[in-house]
Design a protein around this nucleic acid. Structure first.
Lengths: 219, 219, 219, 219
DNA sequence: GATGAATGAGGATTCATTCAT
DNA sequence: AATGAATGAATCCTCATTCAT
């Protein structure tokens, strides 16, 4: 076997272990505050020896950062990527909000991680804020939104979104809650009442499709 | 000196020590997550011996609960108490939002504690949610607000409020930001544009008064 | 009981525990290299809980420094203190060398600690070097010693002394070995042959006295 | 290519890797206590994978022993080998002392390793002690040295030598310090003052030669 | 009631060593 | 032979809690 081949096998394995550690940390992290997560829990969840953890991460912090980074990547691929195909900023905004909240419904682990660190952990927080800001500014530029204070609008969108997610995770069961939240936000941004409704409730294949969208399998 | 008098002096002292411990815990808590707060920090801040702490609280949890309870009390006295004098639910809502945010501007310790545990710690969370719900329902009943989904409206009010507070604590400097947020929320609840503005910006003595409102001195 | 009295009791106890930790560390340290000494061994030797150690010393280094400091103190009181009563620098030097080596014979723990860190650990090393230097310079000034290179003389005295100590600790059994070493060093420093012998072998009460000189009891 | 040739190439390579590991361990060891040297540091210094280390040494101890053995070999070849050409035991002794100290001046790594384990590590310690003892006994036998206690003389020679080396490594800069030490020791052993000086300072080609004597390249 | 020394369970981290590729 | 991923025992350190004074 060639050295390069051997190396690439080693690398692949290394990458797999690293991913499984991140995935384990992510699952543990879904259930408790960041400071309460112990390395013991992570390695137990990953079914890996204690020392192995330290072959991949120097500290507990580091793995949590990696979780945030992985989620951020995920999000860029799943949510914001779809946006680019939609021209209307209002429709894009609605789509993103709905995706977010539906995702939390399907996968409560995901939801709790977002609620817990969506505004704190480094790369994740930026990804979210950036996505919202981009759409908002495009909407304003194109006359789609009427907004007097942009910062206030962002606080409203993010705050409402996160709080709604928490409500969902707390057991709120209306299946069209994501759509109602999207509609409410669109109206707040100055979109006409009727139009807001039709945009927020329009059929999205990515949401109705019968797939079990599951982040655990991504890393 | 009469025994009863001595006793009451003892009680007063006991109460003072307890308060100073809660205040110390509160100040420490403003700077870090709940799980990261150590008893060492609290007793150092309170300048009290380790054993003394355990004369007042059985566990670390207990003092944190007491902090939330004390804040909740505070809040009932300062914010919601003033509401009862105002008839119009819209005006009441605006007043509460502005008080909240101005309070965070004046006292960032207070702000951080609210942001950190406003939605988690037991009695505090209820106090806030209850206050908002009461005003919202009154507004709906009196035809002041147009709301199709009450839960969504609550998520919007609380979420936007907390996110705005975070923005302020992060260094956002517009001095009328609380008013802009209040206006935005009123409009979202269906209050007429112009009226929303005048209500949100009306002069509030409790805000302009030249008092140094300081929670530290209350407990 | 008065507060001050209570405090002093507390202090006394504190001092006792600290001393017992230093003594334990010293005993452990006699048997292995500094880097090989674990806190577990120290607390086992001191019969104290793990946490107690950290109430007194922040790190392992700190307790080792304290051991060196305590030894240095000891040495100032026992060896150099006696020197001051002797006028002749040659006699002083001989006395110190003999004390050193006899001490190692009586208490091999002490000997090993000196051999191991006598030239490394901060305050101890200085105490020894300083004592030797002082006597040497006095002897030169008073025409008692003929020395062309002072640094070389110091290296000779310290080096020979430590190596002789190691020989003793290794099981060398001549009971007058300390005296022979003292005589050899005096001759090297230029003292007349006969005189060197009589000085090195003169009766020293502090050495013949039937006391069980035991450092363990000092700290 | 013949199998035997291939085998010998393999052996040569094996020997080279082994040497580079010993050399790496030696360099690391120059900077810290034996117990503080980690395998990680050694393999990093040797730029070799972890597993490779264990193809050559079973344990960490083993490589340290190998370092001592290699040094011992070196020493036999460089220092004692030259002695055999010199007839006069006093001149031989002086030559060895000078070589020792000059070597430490040229290569402080070497010096530190000697100071650190010259008296502890198995084969090295014996080589040194043996060399000194041989010369000393020859000198006594030939009436060159006047020594009453042989053990004391050995302690003096080794102790003074090591301490002088430490002084040099600590930054002492007299370039003829090795010669002064050699002279001092000769005089102590009973060699006539003047003769001691001329022997200790006689020109030694092996010291003045413009070669960069460097142990790193030997293993 | 106040004090602070002592405790020990729990969690973080290091590092020598094994082993499959 | 060389590699480096995986292991887990050993060690360090923190901190909530107890208790005698």
């Amino acid at each position: 076997m060639q050295p390069s081949q051997r190396a690439s096998i080693g690398l692949a394995k290394r990458e797999r272990t690293r991913s499984s550690l991140i995935a384990a940390a992510y699952r543990v992290f879904a259930h408790k505050e960041a400071d309460a997560v112990t390395i013991d829990e992570i390695i137990a969840e990953a079914a890996v020896a204690r020392g192995t953890f330290y072959n991949y991460f120097q500290t507990r912090e580091e793995v949590l950062t990696a979780v945030a980074a992985a989620l951020s990547d995920e999000m860029n691929h799943s949510i914001w990527a779809q946006s680019t195909e939609i021209e209307d900023p209002a429709a894009r905004m609605a789509m993103a909000i709905r995706q977010f909240l539906h995702q939390a419904m399907r996968d409560s682990n995901w939801g709790w991680v977002i609620v817990r660190c969506g505004l704190v952990a480094a790369p994740l927080s930026e990804t979210i804020t950036m996505g919202v800001t981009t759409d908002l500014e495009a909407g304003i530029r194109m006359g789609r939104f009427q907004v007097t204070n942009q910062q206030a609008a962002i606080d409203l969108i993010l705050g409402t979104g996160l709080m709604a997610m928490r409500t969902i995770l707390g057991g709120h069961l209306e299946t069209d809650y994501p759509e109602q939240i999207a509609e409410l936000i669109l109206k707040t941004l100055g979109v006409d009442k009727k139009e807001a409704h039709s945009i927020a409730f329009q059929v999205l294949e990515s949401l109705t499709a019968d797939r079990t969208y599951c982040y655990e399998h991504k890393f």
